[in-house]
Amino acid sequence: MTSTARKRRVVLLGSTGSIGTSTMKVAAMLRDRIEIIALAACTSVEKLAEQVRETGVKDVAIHDATKESALRALVPEGTRIHTGTEGLVHLATLAEADIVLVSIIGTAGLHPALAAIEQGKDLAVASKEILVMAGEVITAAAEKHGVRILPVDSEHNAIFQCLDGHRGGEAEVSRLILTASGGPFRRMPADQLAQVTPEQALKHPTWNMGPKITIDSATLFNKGLEMIEARWLFGIGMERIDVVVHPQSIIHSMVEFRDGSVLAQLSRTDMCFPIQYALTWPDRVKGNLQPLDFPTLAKLEFESPRDDDFPALNLARRAGLTGGTLPAVLNAANEVAVDAFRAGHLPFPGIWECVAATMDAHDVRTSPDLSTVVAADAWARETARDFCQHPA
């Protein structure tokens, strides 16, 4: 895409969450490059209606079909409202769309993501579940249909930028190094973790994110899920994907090449940076995002994760190495455990314990299709809920 090309037309699924609202900012900032043509949300009717009025889109979807009437009362006449998974799929396959950005938390993004790929749409991925649960299915479909999967997560977007232009591809790479802030408890003694409250876990030291991702950052499951994502996005074995704790969150990830050189991507902690790059790639476009002021950076620190005290990374590596349905089971059990922790039904370390117990109980299916993945997800949720009600 060159500066003289037409606007890139974007379908935004998950428009009312933190990624969605940042995408709206980027689109408003780059009106000559990005046009949002359809919006979808899960339940946030008022915010979705406000976005419809702001953008003037004619197609909108609400995943919760019971909210259709409430949404219809708030949007301009003539707005086409779609509901449920079918509504998300309809938007993802709009003929006029160039790219579909999926930032829906949970399994709801799976079917529209696959449908978009099958219609030849490029996919910008901000929903970890898509590649964690069904990376094998999604990447195979993208290769078959000649579709690009563009990462929106800051860590994967950073790796994508570091790899861009390296003609040797995977053969040039020694390691992918994902950076983690370490969360709010990185220095907390292990014997105090059982007393952690949801309110404490929701206070992330550097990023402003939704509650699920924020708690995942506190347990390090967020980074574990990103390891599995990276395996599929970049075709790198799990044994070559590492994590380093970097509390300042200035370096978003790094690539170590076989000659010993390391490339890193740095920017302020603002999700607008990776969103903009994903939606304007391969161009770099000037907006109003502020670059780093290096003299004001006091220091950049690095340390190893506390794997014994925060076992999420080991669980994720096990799931990624095993493959099949186990990553979907890890993801589903973690979602259930986080909900139980937020509701006060599970202590903070119980999140790891729930995921480990659910993984241990699972009979892994290899080379699964999408229906098998969805079935494994449902089984894991039921098993994890039972654990949360009767923890060991």
Rank of each mutant, 00 (worst) to 15 (best):
V45T: 12
V100C: 15
E136W: 00
L74K: 14
R148E: 03
M133W: 00
R31H: 10
K128C: 06
A124V: 10
V147R: 00
R33I: 07
A108K: 09
T66G: 06
A134F: 01
I138E: 10
A95K: 15
S44I: 02
A49E: 08
A40L: 11
E68I: 06
R148Q: 05
K25D: 14
S44R: 11
D59Q: 15
K25N: 10
L88A: 12
D32N: 14
L74H: 04
T21F: 02
G84W: 05
S44W: 04
V60C: 06
G20E: 07
G56K: 11
A134H: 02
I99K: 12
M133L: 04
I104A: 14
G56C: 12
V26P: 09
M29N: 11
P76L: 12
D64T: 02
E136D: 08
D98A: 08
I62V: 14
A70E: 14
A28D: 14
L88P: 11
A113L: 02
K47Y: 04
H63Q: 09
I149T: 01
G120F: 06
A140T: 04
E77R: 08
H90T: 15
T55C: 05
V132W: 00
D64V: 01
V60T: 13
V125Y: 04
S44N: 13
V60N: 03
S127L: 12
K144T: 04
E54K: 13
R31T: 15
T79M: 09
